[in-house]
């Protein structure tokens, strides 16, 4: 464990908690893409099946359980409890255009052709594009609540910190995982446009609205 990975995990945890609290406290999921949240629940489910097979550390297990719990709670709030506030008309990204190619790629490019490894690879590839429905929804509505932009900022920051973590681990441990690195670079690049708007607008107290 290094400071970049720890900060990255805490940033990821912050994002997940911020979103869940925002929906729970405001009793509304307006502006939130339910599709992205379903994809994240799928990412955690397929990646953390090793909860059942191996124990790495208390930290590892605890964080995985929290991530899975919060992501399912968020999906539950959006599609069941607060369904009336779900803005389905703007959450129209065709997720099958993500899941099918990602599923296919996981079969073609992986470290090991075993079920758990294929699912982990699928999860890594899916996570890199899972935010697209949310970014697409913001481009359609033309704006995002400030709390939603903070959620996106921490979510984007987490994988950017993981990139530094991988540089650190390569240099000090000779460890590197090309699949995770390439997917992580793609994932972080997808946030660049948002990061620019976040820094130039939200951090200056303005509302995030498009066109920029």
């Amino acid at each position: 464990m290094n400071i970049f990975r720890l900060t990255g995990d805490l940033s990821h945890l912050a994002a997940i908690i911020i979103l869940l609290l925002k929906i729970w406290k405001s009793r509304s999921c307006a502006g939130i893409s339910g599709k992205s949240q379903v994809l994240f629940a799928l990412v955690f489910t397929t990646r953390y099946l090793d909860l059942l097979t191996s124990f790495i550390s208390l930290y590892n297990t605890t964080m995985k359980v929290i991530y899975i719990g919060c992501s399912y709670a968020t999906v539950y709030l959006i599609y069941m409890k607060l369904k009336a506030t779900y803005d389905g008309n703007h959450d129209t990204f065709r997720v099958e255009f993500l899941i099918v190619p990602v599923g296919g790629l996981a079969f073609l490019v992986n470290h090991d052709f075993s079920p758990l490894e294929i699912l982990w690879t699928f999860s890594i590839y899916l996570e890199s594009v899972a935010i697209l429905p949310q970014l697409f929804m913001i481009s359609k509505t033309g704006e995002a609540e400030t709390i939603t932009t903070h959620y996106l900022f921490f979510l984007g920051l987490y994988r950017a910190l993981y990139l530094i973590n991988w540089i650190w681990r390569f240099y000090f441990e000779g460890f590197f995982d090309m699949i995770a690195i390439v997917a992580g670079v793609v994932q972080t690049i997808l946030y660049c446009d948002f990061f620019y708007l976040y820094v130039t607008k939200v951090l200056k107290g303005k509302k995030l609205s498009l066109p920029a």
Binding site: R5, D9, H12, D50, S54, I56, S57, N60, M63, K64, Y67, H111, D112, W120, Y162, N165, G174, F175, F176, D177, M178, A180
Partner: peptide, 10 residues
């Protein structure tokens, strides 16, 4: 395979 078998990252 430069990856450790055990996936220790989240």
């Amino acid at each position: 395979r430069n990856r450790t078998d055990v996936k220790d990252e989240l």
